[in-house]
Design a protein around this nucleic acid. Structure first.
Lengths: 153, 153
DNA sequence: TTTTATAGGTCAATAACATTGACCTATAAT
DNA sequence: ATTATAGGTCAATGTTATTGACCTATAAAA
């Protein structure tokens, strides 16, 4: 690989780092006003996308231990953003669901990010969204080819 | 914004989160074998890109406090990956530089990421790289329009 | 030349994030 | 009855990162 090509790729690494950092800044700022943090946002986001998700499914999605998930989940329930009720089909399973208050907060947080992505894709034209998504999917595919293991707690 | 559009944008948020997480996994694994961590990689990366960078410039780049940077920087010097020498033009300033050992480790870590990005861009065709970079630059631009402040320590 | 500012190093306290390990209850499946 | 699964919780540990305080050395300005 020649020096010039390596420099171009270094630019991509920098952009990835800086973009991710910028992207989480405004939600982080809003979260701190509510006395909660980034992991709470992730929980709100995934519960909003998949209502009645179980704790176990959320654990697998976020790739954290149940001990790490436990405190933020409990706080969100205590603060009235989320409910946790036994599933009718299996009473061991807890189904997580956002309350109206939780939906409002999730919307406030994620709208910042959705709005910015929408604005960028619209200004850059039609295929920018597909291409950006395709690159990201290919990055994630690195991992999917490796994870034929188990791993819980 | 209609429901379908919102779903598409939710996909981008998920992809961003999962892609970033996947992207840092393999370097993190290598780092832990050396008893160091992600911040050490960032330091190695930016010192490699800009040899003789000062501590202050590195602080501004990484947006951390000098207290947060201090321990990892010292460790890298102690472990022989980096040198920290007073600058000839201003003896208060320390110029950070990688040793050969440091260059080798930085290369090992970043090559994983450069290689993957290169592979993806090549497989996806010529304009995917420009478009992906342009989207990321636009995300970073959110922040640049806001940061007309100071803020040091 | 005294004063002030800058660059950097370091200690302490605090806290979010996340881990491993251990142990508990409740429920479901065998 | 036994075993497995889902979930909750306590404890100990460690990294990342913060704010606050205080120190030295050097440079620039008054």
């Amino acid at each position: 690989m020649d020096k010039n090509r390596e420099d171009q790729l270094n630019d991509t690494l920098m952009l990835f780092y800086f973009a991710y950092r910028t992207f989480t800044k405004e939600p982080d700022r809003i979260l701190s006003q509510h006395g909660i943090h980034r992991l709470h946002h992730r929980i709100l986001f995934f519960v909003a996308r998949q209502p009645n998700i179980s704790v176990h499914e959320l654990l697998d999605t976020l790739e954290v231990t149940k001990q790490a998930l436990h405190a933020p989940t409990r706080q969100l329930v205590e603060m009235g953003y989320m409910t946790s009720e036994p599933a009718s089909h299996d009473r061991r399973v807890r189904e997580l669901k956002l309350t109206e208050k939780g939906e409002a907060l999730e919307k406030q947080l994620s709208d910042v990010q959705r709005g910015k992505m929408n604005e960028i894709f619209e200004s850059m034209g039609s295929n920018s969204e597909e291409i950006w998504k395709e690159v990201m999917k290919n990055i994630i595919a690195i991992d999917e080819s490796k994870s034929e293991d188990g791993g819980s707690n």
